[in-house]
Design a protein around this nucleic acid. Structure first.
Lengths: 186, 186, 186, 186
DNA sequence: TATGAATGAGCGTTCATTCAT
DNA sequence: AATGAATGAACGCTCATTCAT
């Protein structure tokens, strides 16, 4: 899977050829099929690896029972840290996400994407709800706020993939937390 | 191109087949090649159509010389309105964006994506700078703030593509403006 | 299909490669797929060609309302004549027949084989019944007799495919008719 | 080889895969290659098993120095009995036979088929010759008669493979003997 | 100008065979 | 001796592209 991800990273998710994955992994083409019954399954495997690492990383990084605002700060920081820690994985995130979009015709290649998104967003929405309940947050729509935060990070991953921003910049977590928590207005 | 976009919308960017485009457009396969020398050129054409519409729409929708905060509000509203106006186009946005990611090997299929992003972000950064200069905004990093806003909208487009959010919801522009401008904290 | 049959004749039913068929037919590999959605369909098409020719030939060759014994003689003669007329087709008969055998697992590749056999045998059984009813034949089991006659011819086709007998020998129809009608005993 | 034959019986001669044979036999894939240098050799081995059993069975079942007509009756009976005794083997007979057909290009996979047929037919032809010499048989062509008898049985094996006839039916040997020896005509 | 039949390079996948254990 | 993970040649099939009409 590491080999596959390396290929996706260097050539893009379209253009993923089994022979390239085999070469990148240093095994024969047939050997891939010992571990993944098909190309789709390989892609799904890669994506699941990505997801599970992300979840493990953020779960471990965020202490439980934090004050909601601190939870959001740590979530932002953990997400950005994950990009540093798993740079190679993140480079291909966008490629996989596109494969998860449901289409009018045919099943999405990666149904797990939607499910994964829903989970993360739901957890964030709970934090938002706690924040407003505790009187700590303004009365924002918790669902929209949660989706906005995750969207913001997602959009930045994409900009990073395009080379428009450096997610490893030290000051970034703080700046983003400020913008999202306090807004830009005085 | 409308035909091509219809096909991408219904089957996904990978899976775009010339024969499907031809059928969706109601012309012969050979005829496509009269207008686009190759499949890549067709894709590029589609993307440029998307970009030019978006730019035309937002430019026309945002009055000039607005107060910075109002500019941001109108930008958010215009972007979301564009999704309503050109629903079909937006459904395929993510498919095209992924093709614009630069890779370690080979040119990106759609070099225009990066350029387009830079333009929009630069314009937003100018607005941010004006906002802070006028003492209207808190002293946020204007570049990061601009990128964040665009990232937020981008991420929401993606969530919309996955069916996780309805961009046509009436109250959405106002809620997003509030979150981005005033933050979630009290 | 003529090309496919030529290839089967020269290399055997196993060993049928699409590329060989394409070359034998003088067209490109892709062109075959314009006319047959898959290799299986090509094989089915060949077999149906074979069957329809055989049926057309024997039907046309056998006058209706013949005396049962004369009917059998003409059936034997027509079957053997068909081998002369469609030598190329007959060379591959056995290859196709094997594909029609039902297996414990999976559908037979050529379900039509069984159906075709049943039809021919049923018609012959009717002739046998008429023969015994008219007191012309000994009281043989009409079903078994019909199956025997067709089996005899089938077995000879196979021996011909192996080069053990020449089905074009002038005297063969008469000799076979004698053996089947009068037996070998005095 | 029993394992291989079981696989051929259940899936057909095409579709014979070494892995399936290994699993059916309960040994490893590599172990097969300890006993058969290649798949072809395995197939040849199976066929030779089939042939030797058949020869042993018929030879043992037919008493020597029988009257020619009685010899034929016993040959027919022995052949049909063999089908009962070695049902599994007979189910795959047709699959192997097809592999013995000589082709315009390349050697037949099972050259032994032709040789085996010639042997059996020659023995039967001798019987026929004796029958006519002794004035017991009508003056039939002994070669053709021998080939016809074996063809008849062969054709019936095939019909049995297709499920069109039950070779185990008690009365079958007698009915076939009658038809072949006395013909269908009164 | 418009077409779609024809093409063949290229890909995903299979499976006979090998060989280190 | 027995194994099965690894291999890659080879095949079925796809689809971007061409070109005669």
């Amino acid at each position: 899977m590491r080999g596959a991800i390396r290929v996706v990273a260097s050539r893009g998710g379209h253009n993923l050829k089994m022979i390239d994955v085999a070469r990148a992994t240093g095994v024969g083409k047939g050997t891939l099929y010992e571990y993944f019954p098909s190309k789709n399954d390989l892609i799904i495997g890669c994506f699941e690896l990505l997801i599970s690492r992300y979840e493990a990383y953020t779960r471990q990084a965020i202490k439980s029972d934090l004050r909601p605002d601190e939870h959001l700060r740590q979530f932002i920081k953990a997400s950005l840290d994950f990009c540093k820690a798993e740079k190679e994985l993140m480079e291909v995130m966008m490629d996989f996400l596109t494969l998860g979009i449901p289409r009018k015709e045919g099943e999405p290649l990666l149904p797990g994407v939607v499910v994964g998104y829903e989970q993360v967003i739901n957890e964030l929405a709970d934090v938002m709800r706690r924040g407003t309940a505790e009187g700590l947050f303004r009365p924002v729509d918790p669902q929209i706020a949660a989706q906005s935060l995750f969207a913001l990070l997602d959009g930045l991953y994409f900009q990073a993939a395009m080379g428009l921003i450096n997610l490893e910049e030290e000051s970034l977590p703080k700046k983003l937390s400020q913008i999202f928590l306090a807004g830009v207005l005085k």
